[in-house]
């Protein structure tokens, strides 16, 4: 069971309080009707399925209720960092160097 740092509670808490919420930084298009079928398909279904650092969303569902973003290494299952929703995507190199 992982420990996850909730950026809103500023506390590392057991995974049981959290729910996974899919890949991060996939914004819903402002005007879906302007998208081609292929573009819309990509938005709906195409994900990176990364081996290594993965940008993903979690919700502190049994805690403060907030959705937030995380970088987790899918090989080691280790969280490199978590950050609030809406904050810019962190630069990977800096994170890996800090590991």
């Amino acid at each position: 069971m992982l420990l996850i740092q909730c950026p809103y509670c500023d506390e590392a808490l057991p995974e049981l309080e959290f729910a996974y919420a899919g890949e991060a930084h996939i914004a819903r298009p402002a005007d879906p009707s302007a998208l081609s079928d292929e573009e819309w398909r990509d938005f709906l279904f195409i994900r990176t399925n990364t081996r290594g650092p993965h940008f993903e969303r979690w919700r502190h569902i049994h805690g403060c209720g907030q959705f937030f973003n995380a970088v987790r290494d899918t090989v080691s299952d280790r969280f490199l960092m978590t950050y609030k929703a809406g904050e810019p995507r962190p630069v990977l190199n800096a994170l890996e160097a800090a590991e």
Binding site: A19, R28, I61, F67, A85, G86
Partner: peptide, 13 residues
């Protein structure tokens, strides 16, 4: 409720 919160918090804050 989870789905609504998701849209509200992350798409339409």
């Amino acid at each position: 409720l989870n789905m609504m919160e998701d849209y509200l918090q992350t798409e339409w804050p």
